[in-house]
Amino acid sequence: MLQRVSIRRNAERRTPIREPLTDRLFVGSIYFILSLVTIVVSYPLIYIVSASFSAPSAVISGKVWLLPVDPTLVAYKAILQSPKLLAGFGNSLFYTVAGTMVSLVLSLLLAYPLSRRDLVGRGPIMFYLAVTLVIGGGLIPMYLTVKYFGMLDTRWAMIIPGAISVWQVIIARTFFQTTIPDELSEAAEMDGSSDFRFFWQMVIPLSKPIIAVMGLMYAVGMWNSYFDALIYLNDSKLFPLQLVLRSILVMNQVDPEMMRDAQQMIQAQGLSTLLKYSLIVVASAPVLILYPFVQRFFIKGIMIGSLKG
């Protein structure tokens, strides 16, 4: 695919015919529209980052438009002093790292054998997986299953029940099928290499793009979800960051006892608004910093799995 793109680019360079005016206008308007789209998509994010660094009074009175006004780190300092938030951050970090490892190992172990054409029973197993895509378990049966296995209100509930995404398995299988030629495994077998060694020393190193994309998808899903925690966890010590955020940001749980007189209330209100903006930044930053590194694998990883699959 890459080769084709470069050929196309060369072809375009070889013909120096000037494009007609209508075409140049057309391309110009595309540049204009895409620039507009970029600004509209990024503005809410820029606004929130700027507001989170601005003085509470400036945020409340609507003086922040593009850049931070009277920059301060007061809200970020307050976040660092909240044990509830730090615990949530720690929990999320643990669930994300542990969960992604478990998910990756299980998915790869399932996907690779299914990509081997010489494996008898591959068809029925694929069917066994595909059925789960059409018929789901439903909320209550799933809850009762987790309860039955004794995982309710434990850290296991966050990692184990949702560990395998059948879609990801199918995507990885298709990737193996299209990038690892049969001849390679046959040659390894002639040299006396076991299936395990071949998988570990050849398949894994050759599959970095799909492992990166799959790992990112599992990690982002884990970091960003609150639903599993909402239904499986009761103990607030186990809550992931997103659930803590939900109580602060969406349900707006501020203790009114803390604000005795009006003056203090205005100040506290200013700070609580600011605090919310900074919380959004803190919660989203890890993922937003991570994904551009994996971005170059997106097209390759997603294309192969979803279209030819």
């Binding site: 054998p113 494996l119 049966p141 184990i160 076991s194 299936d195």
Partner: peptide
Amino acid sequence: RWQLYLFMIIPLLHITAFKYVPM
């Protein structure tokens, strides 16, 4: 190919426990 079948045991048990049991 017993090693390949071995690979799939735990994932398939997982699918059974957390997809088929709720189903």
